[in-house]
Simulated assay, not measured.
Amino acid sequence: MAALCMAFIIGAIVIDRDSGACPPSNWHNHIALTLAGNQARVDEAAAITACTGARCIPPAPTFAKNASAGNGLLSRQEDGSWLFTVGSVPPSSVTFRTFDVAGNMLSQQSNVLNWTRVGGTEQCGGPMGTMRVVVRVP
């Protein structure tokens, strides 16, 4: 009898877990990036890279010489801030580097990100609130 009860409980758990199939992720998470510090150097910032581990967007800093508004994933906003669009599984840390128009690095800063989910469910995930990061430019 005990074996029958255990089989029923295990079956119920498996059915319950499988019955709530998660829909595909159709959202993006964002990091709103503001530069602060030496205002003259902040004004010189023409481009930014965002790196998680060894992967960077854009992949090489040489783009800074030709940068205008960014590449779609990391773009400059009208108010002078930057918006970094990440996938549905956001990174736990990001290193930002700022560059002037000649491609010279102005600053580098690593940030640990503690995201807060604002939608979806614990089981299936969901969109996170926009992460706000201030990058210091000496």
Rank of each mutant, 00 (worst) to 15 (best):
M1R: 12
M1N: 12
A2P: 06
M6V: 12
F8C: 14
I13Q: 06
I13L: 10
I13M: 10
V14Q: 01
V14L: 04
I15A: 12
D16N: 11
S19R: 15
G20I: 03
G20K: 14
A21Y: 03
A21G: 14
A21I: 04
P23S: 12
P24N: 11
S25P: 11
N26R: 07
W27L: 07
H28L: 04
H30G: 03
I31V: 15
A32G: 08
L33Y: 00
T34Q: 10
L35T: 00
L35E: 00
A36V: 03
A36L: 04
G37T: 07
Q39I: 05
A40C: 02
A40R: 15
A40F: 05
R41N: 08
R41K: 15
V42M: 04
D43L: 05
E44P: 02
A45I: 09
A45R: 00
A46S: 12
I48E: 05
I48Y: 02
I48D: 03
I48A: 05
I48T: 09
T49D: 11
C51K: 03
C51H: 09
G53S: 09
G53Y: 14
R55P: 01
P58M: 06
P58L: 13
P59G: 11
P59C: 03
P59R: 05
P59F: 01
P61V: 07
T62A: 10
K65A: 14
N66E: 06
A67E: 09
S68W: 06
G70W: 06
N71V: 15
N71H: 09
G72H: 06
L73D: 02
L73I: 02
L74T: 01
S75C: 05
R76A: 14
E78P: 11
D79L: 03
D79H: 08
G80A: 13
W82G: 00
L83V: 11
T85Y: 00
V86M: 06
V86E: 01
G87L: 05
G87Y: 07
G87M: 04
G87S: 10
V89C: 02
V89M: 04
P90E: 01
P90G: 04
S92T: 13
S93T: 13
S93I: 04
S93C: 02
V94E: 06
T95K: 06
F96L: 14
T98M: 03
F99D: 13
F99T: 12
A102R: 09
G103C: 07
G103K: 03
M105V: 05
L106D: 02
L106T: 02
Q108S: 15
Q108G: 15
Q109D: 15
S110G: 14
V112G: 04
N114Q: 12
N114C: 04
N114G: 09
N114M: 08
R117E: 04
V118A: 10
G119N: 12
E122S: 08
E122I: 13
E122A: 09
E122Q: 13
E122D: 14
Q123A: 13
Q123N: 11
G125S: 05
G125Y: 00
G125R: 00
G126I: 07
P127N: 12
M128T: 06
M128Q: 14
M128W: 04
G129F: 08
G129V: 05
V133Q: 06
V134F: 01
V135I: 10
R136K: 07
P138V: 00
P138I: 00
P138R: 00
P138T: 00
